[in-house]
C-alpha cells in the first residue's frame, strides 16, 4: 500500500480524531491514501462512518497493541 500521509491522532478524544482526519484528507489528492492512528475506542465506528459519509474508501482497518489503524483512500 502506498501511503501518502500519516496522521497520528493517538491520545485524542472524540471528536478530535474525526476532525483531524478531515483536515488531513483535505491536504491529499483524490485516490491517495491517508493512514490514521488513534487510541480513542469511539474512533473505530466514528472514522468508519465518517469515511462512508464522505464517499471515501476504508481500504483496511486493524488494531495492534490498542492502537487503531485506518487506511483511507480519498474519494
Amino acid at each position: 500500500m502506498n501511503i501518502t500521509k500519516t496522521l497520528d491522532a493517538k491520545g485524542l478524544a472524540c471528536p478530535m480524531p474525526v476532525v483531524r482526519t478531515k483536515k488531513a484528507i483535505d491536504t491529499i489528492n483524490s485516490g491517495e491514501i491517508l493512514e490514521v492512528l488513534a487510541t480513542d475506542k469511539g474512533a473505530l465506528s466514528d472514522i468508519t462512518a465518517w469515511a462512508k459519509s464522505g464517499g471515501h474508501t476504508l481500504l483496511e482497518q486493524k488494531t495492534e497493541d490498542d492502537i487503531l489503524y485506518f487506511y483511507i483512500q480519498k474519494a
Binding site: 471528536p15 474525526v18 478531515k22 466514528d46 465518517w50
Partner: peptide, 11 residues
Amino acid sequence: FNIATAAAASE
C-alpha cells in the same frame, strides 16, 4: 460542540 464539529467534519 462535539456534535457540531463532528457534523462539520462530515461536510
